[in-house]
Amino acid sequence: MITILALGPSVDVTYLVDEFFEGGTFRPTGVYRAAGGKAINAARAAVTMGADVAVVAPLGGASGQFVLDEAVAAGIRLVPVWASADTRTCISISSAASGLLTELYEQPSAITGDELARLHEGADGLLAERPGWFAISGGIPASVPVGGLAALVELAHSHGHPVAVDSHGPPLAAALSARPELLKINRAEAAEALGIEPEADAFDTAERLRALTGGTVVITDGVAGSYAVDEQGRHRAEWSGDFGRYPVGSGDSYLGGLLASLDAGGTLGDSLRLAAGCAAANALVPGAGRFAETDALAIAAEVVVS
């Protein structure tokens, strides 16, 4: 089982247009709306790969109700904490002419102290009844104290759960000392956490982060693949196929596939393959975390882990 805390849920809207440029007026050729935010995208990907997933999330207004309805329809058990702020909307615009993607992401909706306490209670309740991984994914609202992420890692540890973290900024840096069992971040986020240049050797960066957490560290690097370090050593995952036009949510899908495999008892190598398969399959279709299981498995079979 996988339990996920989603502090920054959103309504994700993807517009497909023939072309896009600043100052123009455009008629979309396709519109896709889904429950989103990094954590819910990861949850949907894990469900696609057969995992039992529950999410606790702050939701507000009609947009929050949409997220709840869509998540449940996708097979996610979502425990809402109803909040005063409306759930945000994030927009992606995909231009067929240029092949480029333009992204407009609202900041995570503010969470009050009372709402944060109720989120802790919701997570505590799920952790008490569900074995397996606990994951915290996505940006942390500015209204949450910097140490809030570390406190959530410690909450899961108090129940004996392994913890996966995929976040960024000061809350992530503060959470490293709470020693999550799995840290999955991209190359830029890893560099930011250590205060180094993104061009630094990815394995060396992962080793430095592992020295802080004591757990497995996975650094993703877009189409270049991923780098992982655990107690067994270094692992490199690569795929040489054609990448799709819709990468929004591929990092989230990577986390969902990674956790689904680890939760099912997969080795790190097998889990890196499935994670890469989910990420690449996600980019084939518009809408984050909405790929086909068959595509993810077919790509995973071609991923080389060395």
Rank of each mutant, 00 (worst) to 15 (best):
residue 177 S to R: 15
residue 177 S to K: 14
residue 179 R to C: 13
residue 180 P to G: 09
residue 180 P to W: 06
residue 181 E to M: 08
residue 181 E to W: 04
residue 182 L to R: 06
residue 184 K to A: 12
residue 184 K to Q: 13
residue 184 K to M: 13
residue 186 N to L: 10
residue 186 N to C: 08
residue 186 N to P: 01
residue 188 A to P: 01
residue 190 A to K: 05
residue 190 A to F: 05
residue 191 A to Y: 04
residue 191 A to H: 02
residue 191 A to M: 10
residue 191 A to V: 09
residue 193 A to G: 02
residue 193 A to W: 02
residue 193 A to P: 01
residue 194 L to E: 05
residue 195 G to E: 08
residue 196 I to L: 13
residue 196 I to G: 01
residue 196 I to V: 15
residue 199 E to S: 15
residue 199 E to F: 09
residue 200 A to F: 12
residue 201 D to W: 11
residue 202 A to L: 14
residue 202 A to H: 07
residue 205 T to V: 15
residue 205 T to N: 01
residue 205 T to Y: 03
residue 206 A to F: 01
residue 206 A to R: 03
residue 207 E to W: 12
residue 207 E to L: 14
residue 208 R to C: 09
residue 208 R to P: 00
residue 209 L to D: 00
residue 210 R to S: 06
residue 210 R to I: 04
residue 211 A to P: 00
residue 211 A to V: 10
residue 213 T to Y: 05
residue 214 G to Y: 10
residue 218 V to W: 05
residue 218 V to I: 14
residue 218 V to Y: 03
residue 219 I to V: 15
residue 219 I to H: 03
residue 221 D to T: 08
residue 223 V to D: 11
residue 224 A to G: 03
residue 224 A to H: 14
residue 224 A to M: 12
residue 224 A to W: 08
residue 225 G to H: 04
residue 225 G to Y: 03
residue 226 S to C: 15
residue 226 S to G: 13
residue 227 Y to Q: 11
residue 229 V to P: 00
residue 230 D to N: 15
residue 230 D to V: 09
residue 230 D to A: 09
residue 230 D to E: 06
residue 232 Q to G: 15
residue 234 R to A: 09
residue 236 R to C: 11
residue 236 R to K: 13
residue 237 A to Y: 00
residue 237 A to F: 02
residue 239 W to C: 06
residue 239 W to N: 05
residue 241 G to L: 06
residue 241 G to N: 04
residue 242 D to R: 15
residue 242 D to K: 13
residue 243 F to I: 14
residue 243 F to D: 01
residue 245 R to S: 14
residue 245 R to C: 09
residue 246 Y to C: 10
residue 246 Y to A: 07
residue 247 P to W: 06
residue 247 P to G: 05
residue 248 V to S: 11
residue 249 G to I: 08
residue 251 G to S: 06
residue 251 G to I: 09
residue 252 D to P: 00
residue 256 G to C: 03
residue 256 G to A: 05
residue 257 G to Q: 05
residue 258 L to H: 06
residue 259 L to K: 07
residue 259 L to N: 01
residue 260 A to H: 01
residue 261 S to N: 12
residue 262 L to N: 04
residue 262 L to S: 02
residue 263 D to V: 09
residue 264 A to G: 14
residue 265 G to R: 08
residue 266 G to C: 10
residue 266 G to Y: 07
residue 267 T to V: 06
residue 267 T to F: 05
residue 267 T to Q: 07
residue 268 L to D: 00
residue 268 L to G: 04
residue 268 L to F: 04
residue 268 L to T: 04
residue 268 L to C: 08
residue 269 G to E: 15
residue 270 D to M: 12
residue 270 D to Y: 05
residue 272 L to E: 06
residue 273 R to D: 05
residue 274 L to H: 10
residue 275 A to P: 01
residue 276 A to W: 03
residue 276 A to K: 08
residue 279 A to N: 07
residue 280 A to D: 03
residue 282 N to C: 12
residue 283 A to Q: 10
residue 284 L to S: 12
residue 285 V to H: 13
residue 286 P to R: 12
residue 286 P to V: 13
residue 287 G to R: 11
residue 288 A to H: 02
residue 289 G to N: 07
residue 289 G to S: 12
residue 289 G to Q: 10
residue 289 G to V: 11
